[in-house]
């Protein structure tokens, strides 16, 4: 749909070859093309601004000036910088020294939390763990049933003491979920929470209360790859509300460029741990920064 950065820069540099050093106008045109490519990929504006300022110098130094194909050289640099940011703090899931490990899922409505709970449960079980999923979305119609079905499909236990649909206290269920795990010997607790808006003060307080009640080892921000410019504010709000420790990108089986990955890592400083790539239990993988960078730049 949109021109890739590579195509854009080929056009920008068409007149350049053989001309020698980049003029100040070439420099501006290059930075502008990088900016547009990132914006078309849904990277948030403030993040684009910081990023282009940071690559400006490198993209316009000798490694580009001397290059046979300056356009490709700039693309290479931008790609490298993206990979560095996206994978800078790449790490594995943090497990508690004294089990159970508690993983809390948080995010906007419909991002893919409940689906992810099933996938995480399945994946953890494959890794030799004994996980339990805890149903703390007592709000969305039949969220509890949805988690129970996902747990059943994954062959993973589900702790769902309250029926939901407006009945039950999510903070209390979360606390009891961890007690339940301790009593029954489950070593990982995955806490599914209701979708909420970053601007919803009451629900963010509730999320924060859930976090305080279970002291999670990981608070994973579940993020839809299709999200646009609001990613940066939303990520900030969740980070302030529940202190995120990691990110999971969902719906990466779609054709969205997923520039929000860059936005969220930049503003929260939390690494992306996993990618969700479909509706099935097994559509789940460890996050690959290089693939994500290529995807954002459409390479």
């Amino acid at each position: 749909m949109f021109a890739s950065l590579s195509d854009r820069l080929t056009t920008t540099f068409k007149t350049l070859r053989g001309k020698g050093r980049l003029s100040p106008a070439d420099v501006d045109a290059t930075v502008r093309q990088i900016r547009l490519a990132l914006l078309d990929a849904d990277v948030s504006l403030p993040v684009v601004r910081a990023f282009t300022a940071a690559v400006r110098e490198r993209a316009l130094g000798d490694e580009v000036n001397g290059a046979l194909n300056p356009g490709q050289q700039v693309v290479k640099i931008v790609n490298e910088e993206l990979v560095t940011i996206l994978g800078g703090e790449s790490r594995r899931l943090r497990l508690a020294k004294n089990p159970p490990t508690v993983i809390m899922l948080a995010g906007l409505q419909g991002a893919g939390k409940t689906t992810l709970a099933g996938k995480l449960g399945y994946w953890l079980k494959q890794q030799g763990h004994a996980p339990v999923l805890v149903a703390c979305d007592l709000q969305r119609p039949n969220a509890v049933t949805q988690l129970q079905v996902n747990g059943e499909r994954a062959g993973v236990a589900v702790f769902a003491p309250e029926p939901g649909n407006g009945v039950g206290d999510p903070v209390d269920v979360a606390r009891r979920g961890v007690e339940h795990a301790r009593a029954r010997g489950y070593d990982v607790v995955v806490v599914d929470t209701a979708g909420r808006l970053g601007v919803d003060a009451d629900l963010m307080q509730q999320a924060s209360d859930i976090r305080d009640a279970v002291q999670p080892d990981e608070v994973l921000f579940v993020l839809d790859a299709m999200i646009g410019q609001s990613a940066v504010d939303t990520a900030k709000q969740f980070d302030e509300g529940v202190s995120l420790t990691g990110v999971v990108m969902t719906k990466l089986d779609g054709d969205a460029r997923g520039g929000a990955a860059l936005s969220v890592v930049t503003v929260t400083g939390s690494p992306i741990l996993f990618a969700s790539t479909g509706e099935k239990l097994t559509d789940f993988e460890v996050f690959h920064p290089d693939r994500m960078a290529g995807r954002i730049l459409d390479m």
């Binding site: 849904d42 999200i227 520039g259």
Partner: peptide, 10 residues
């Protein structure tokens, strides 16, 4: 979804 970025057009 109002949060959708440029993929919405697709």
């Amino acid at each position: 979804d109002a949060t959708t970025g440029q993929n919405g057009l697709m």
